[in-house]
Design a protein around this nucleic acid. Sequence first.
DNA 1: GAGGAACTAAACATAC
DNA 2: AGTATGTTTAGTTCCT
Length: 668
Amino acid sequence: MMQESGTETKSNDSAVQNGGNSGNHLLECTLRETRSNGETPSLDAADLAHLQQHQALQVARQLLIHQQQTTGVKVHKRNDKQPSLQVPVSVAMMTPQVITPQQMQQILQQQVLTPQQLQVLLQQQQALMLQQQLQEFYKKQQEQLQLQLLQQQHAGKQPKEQQQQVATQQLAFQQQLLQMQQLQQQHLLTLQRQGLLSIQPGQPALPLQPLAQGMIPNELQQLWKEVTGSHTADDAGCNNHSTLDLSTTCVSSVVAPKTSLLLNHQASTNGQTSLLTPKRESAAHEDYTQNHPLYGHGVCKWPGCEAVCEDFPSFLKHLNSEHALDDRSTAQCRVQMQVVQQLELQLSKDKERLQAMMTHLHVKSTEPKASPQPLNLVSSVTLSKTASEPSPQSLPHTPTTPTTPLTPLTQGPSVITTTSIHNVGPIRRRYSDKYNVPISSDIAQNQEFYKNAEVRPPFTYASLIRQAILESPEKQLTLNEIYNWFTRMFAYFRRNAATWKNAVRHNLSLHKCFVRVENVKGAVWTVDEIEFQKRRPQKISGSPSLIKNIQTSHAYCTPLNAALQASMAENSIPLYTTASMGNPALTSLASAMREELNGVIEHGNSNGSDSSPGRSPMQAMHHVHVKEEPLDPDENEGPLSLVTTANHSPEFDPDRDYEDEPVNEDME
DNA sequence: GAGGAACTAAACATAC
DNA sequence: AGTATGTTTAGTTCCT
């Protein structure tokens, strides 16, 4: 119980990065950029001026904040909602010197401008800076191209062809640069029109809302990436993805990563603008030609285009001719942005939903038992597990709220870890596994645990026997195979063989749902699902909570009914394992749902269904020994899954005879 | 406290 | 005879 704090406190860094207020954020951003610049031991004049400019701008912003607070100008709502989006972008925008820090400080100190005016000024400054940066980049590209040209001429390798190619590239760069400049201006105008940039005179403006802050992060990143980012060779992170990937990867999720990613991204772009050597730029350019987000596999990846371009220059030509800055391209760009945003929104919603689902299911699995003593693994181990361990899906668990209505049926798969072994004590009693724990998902989830830890699985012998049989390919096992399954799947059953084997035999004989079938090889045991169905109504009617939970799970899984019925009709195995293949979470969830549904559906079809999985093998058999069980005590251990785990431990020798060992457990 | 379920232990039968 | 398999009974514990 105590070790849970460790995993819960991992996100401290991100919490710090989240930065409560924009002021701190400003400082942090400046510091970061200062650090990134300061990593080079000797700052040149440009860097120093750059830093000074940042500091001056920051002072200006602080003053603006102060002024707005004192004059009662209300901060725009979006400022509260997206505090982290404002600064990093804006800071990164300011590279070239447009107004000297001294000038800026003068302006600020004299306070001759209103906040709105200052903001307009800032935005204009930043737009200018961006343009200057673009031009600077363009210059560098030109230099690099000229250098390449010279080198190629010097080398005398197909000079004409190379020259042409370089010229084409140069032209393409020019065009792209121009396009991006136009695009940026158009973005600005559009955003202003849409009110995303609050620089209207009559409207309370964001004090710290500079040029870029009003822009949608995706848009901004796309812009930046197209201008500079993709040219960076060592930009291993987001820039290696396509533009959309960049957006979804870097802008979605939570604020802190977003901020840091933005910072990193911009730091790298700034850095490459000023620090890249020609050699690196060359490499970067090469990388860019190969990794242009809109070009791949000889096809233009502009949404809805897919035009074939044999090489990169032709792609650029195509890009500039077909996707030039016009209404259509702009509209497509906006649509794409909306698509990305929508996807992000959907993703976040689905994440929330999934988390709520998992939380809900785990909350149920952590239902505290009334019994004061830990009676089984479910009540003891799972409880500690849920509080301390992240789920395999790395979803955070929310602590069990005492007021949450807890129901025992719809438990999700519970994962037991070795950290909770200490909770495993002598277990006398099996958890009442009817409708409680989906055995297959529990076994699947905790398979390694059960295999390695000598803990008794929280299921009855009957449940385990049934599971073993249902896991077999033909839904039938000999007694010895059942034994082997027990020893293979559970370390616990590798000792005290006489005891549990006797119990297995006892259960097989006692419970009507286990049918002994004699075939040519000998006797095998199968599971009679009809017997299982027979008893369910009694159980359900006897327990209102069970009825409720059956209904709950039924409603929950309603969309799956058809598939479930279909899959059950064919002995049930493949459907969910196929559908959820490769996803343990889905597998266990599906199997859990399925186990719940087994009972519900079969209950509904209980008047002699021919599709009962247990039937088909029996019909091919000769002697079926029908037991005349009075009121069977145990034949229906709840809806056990028909989904197989079929994960046999390779290191375990099923033929090994685990003989009795000193009994040191199960003693009471 | 009663009844049921699950478990353990054991006796017994049968087949190989 | 020994072992594996299968059946049945009895006693205990725990839960509802």
